[in-house]
Each structure stands twice: as structure tokens, then as C-alpha cells.
Design a protein around this nucleic acid. Structure first.
Length: 287
DNA sequence: AAGGCTAGCAACCGCCTCGTC
DNA sequence: AGACGAGGCGGTTGCTAGCCT
């Protein structure tokens, strides 16, 4: 059914790359001012690899702008925040972390951050307490997650724009310049994402009105309901769920003694919107 | 010291999207 | 319109180093 793997051809090497292969690939790309067609690159460069393998090696390891070394606290914070908004869209998340690859972020998430959230009793997909995220009033989980992401998008954007207007006097003349770390605020991140191609899919989603249509959480071409309608529905759902959760005192104490910094980072994010009552709930550990 | 276990990470695989013909 | 190829993406695998017993 599926297409045959591109490396099935006889004679093509698989597995870890040797320093010699790395050198050949880097030299070829530098010499030609780019990779050109990945499919034809191995033959032209004299590598016994498939084009896909070359592309992966270049984008995940050999690219000169890749930042090596452990993730900083700020980067981890950003990954958690972005994952809460974008879900498992590693490429979209990595586009907001200069020098970090999607593979690196995916590994960070799977080996560190995900486990951290699970340890704290939080669903790594929804960033909400496990018991809560599993029962969205009988609605399909994938739909509720995407709905939540949509609402967070809109809320974060509105908050960011409001803050940006307040702080406009502090900004550079170039409103699109987000490079200066001194001026980098959380608002900046969201406006930058919102104005990027990543946000485009969400901006265009405002055209759709069918809030009840199923949403594929794994696809980059989601069809989503109108954001304002979703936000309204979400607020209603969350309030209902909070009432349900508050009646279940057994689960509400699980997180109170958590001092994990990741949770703090997640909750520290200044989204003061119609979902802010979530933070006031005793269900989530006090700051 | 040695064997088992685990975490971290590089690389692969299969599916999807988009562009071209 | 649909078949095909190329590139991109996310999930998963497998190797390795470090830790534990």
C-alpha cells in the first residue's frame, strides 16, 4: 500500500553518519550555495545515501545556524507554552526557537517535558489535569483539544495586541522586529506567531462557522469553528467541568504540593482572559 | 567488575501536502 | 481531474552512554 522506503535501493547506506560523510555533504552544499534537489544531491555529491537521509542530516545536525547544547529555562518555558497552543506541531514550535530543530524539540518534549507534566498529573496533550482532560462532557477528545487550542490562540492574540498597544512607546520603529532580546515579551511571541504562516492557518480558520465539525488534531489543514464561538463554547464547557471537578475532592489535592518549575512556568504565562478563572481554581496549585 | 536497566538522541519510516504535468 | 514526484512532518525505533545493583 504505502510507498516503498526510499533507501530500499541496493547499495544505499543507512544508520549513523560518519564524519567523512558529514564533510562531503557540508562541502557540497557550501560549494553549490544550497542543497538544490535533495533527490539528486547524493549522486552529485558522491554519497551512498538517499536524499531524504541527506536532508534530515543537514536540517537536524549540520546546518550552520543550529544551536547546540542544553535547552535554557526560557526555551523550555517557550516550548511548554507553544505546545499548549499548537499541540504536537513540532515544526511550528521550532520555527519560534531560533537554532532549534523540530526533532530536537520533539525529543525534549518526549524525554523531559512530557514526563514532567505526567508526573504532575497533567495531560501532556491538553496541559490540563488528567481526570479533566479525559472527559470533555462526552465530546471527542481530539475536538476539545483543538477547540481549546483555537480559543487560546485567539485569547493570547487579543491579550498580546492589547499589551503591545500599551507598550508601543517602548518598541523599536520597526514593529516587525522581534530580534532584540531586551524588547522580547510574551506578547511579542504570540504576535510573531500570529503573523507568521503558522498563525495563518488559525486566522483563515475564522472563516468557518461549523463549530461541531470534527477536527483532526494531527493535520496541519484543520477546519475549525469560528474562534469567538469556540471561545464562548469553551468558557461554558470549562465552567461546567470545573463544577464537576470541584465535586471530586480526591483528585483536587494531587497537585497542591507540586513545586516543579515547569508547572509554574506554564501557569505563569500571563493570559488574562476569559479562561483566567482556570488559574483561580483550587484544582491547580497556588502560585 | 559485570550485567541489566534507563534516558537521551540521532535516524528512519510512513503518511501527507503541494506543485507540476 | 488525477497521477506522480519531491519535500516536509510527526511518530517511532534503535543505538549508546551512564547509572544502578
Amino acid at each position: 500500500m504505502g510507498r516503498a522506503p526510499c533507501c530500499d535501493k541496493m547499495g544505499l547506506k543507512k544508520g549513523p553518519w560518519t564524519p567523512e560523510e558529514d564533510e562531503i555533504l557540508v562541502n557540497f552544499i557550501n560549494k553549490n550555495g544550497g542543497h538544490g534537489s535533495w533527490r539528486s544531491l547524493p549522486k552529485l555529491a558522491g554519497l551512498l545515501r538517499c536524499g531524504k537521509s541527506c536532508r534530515l542530516r543537514w536540517t537536524n545536525y549540520l546546518r550552520p545556524d543550529i544551536k547546540r547544547g542544553p535547552f535554557t529555562l526560557e526555551e523550555e518555558k517557550l516550548v511548554i507554552q507553544l505546545h499548549g497552543i499548537l499541540g504536537n506541531r513540532w515544526a511550528a514550535i521550532s520555527s519560534q526557537l531560533p537554532g532549534r530543530t523540530d526533532n530536537e524539540i520533539k525529543n525534549l518534549w518526549n524525554t523531559h517535558l512530557k514526563k514532567r507534566l505526567i508526573r504532575m498529573g497533567l495531560d501532556p496533550q491538553t496541559h490540563l489535569p488528567m481526570a479533566y482532560s479525559c472527559y470533555q462532557l462526552g465530546k471527542p477528545l481530539a475536538s476539545s483539544v483543538s477547540t481549546r487550542h483555537m480559543a487560546q490562540w485567539e485569547s493570547a492574540r487579543l491579550e498580546a495586541e492589547a499589551r503591545l498597544s500599551r507598550e508601543s512607546s517602548l518598541f523599536n520603529n520597526d514593529p516587525n522586529s522581534f530580534v532584540d532580546a531586551n524588547n522580547k515579551t510574551d506578547s511579542d511571541y504570540f504576535l510573531r506567531i500570529w503573523n507568521s504562516e503558522v498563525g495563518e492557518s488559525f486566522r483563515s480558520a475564522r472563516k468557518f462557522d461549523d463549530i461541531t465539525s470534527p477536527i483532526s488534531s494531527g493535520s496541519s489543514s484543520n477546519k475549525c469553528g469560528s474562534v469567538s464561538a469556540i471561545t464562548t463554547e469553551l468558557a461554558s464547557n470549562v465552567k461546567d467541568d470545573l463544577e464537576w471537578r470541584n465535586s471530586d475532592s480526591a483528585s483536587s489535592n494531587d497537585l497542591e504540593d507540586s513545586s516543579d518549575t515547569a508547572l509554574q512556568l506554564l501557569l505563569d504565562f500571563p493570559i488574562n482572559n476569559d479562561m483566567s478563572f482556570l488559574e483561580e481554581s483550587s484544582f491547580i496549585s497556588p502560585l
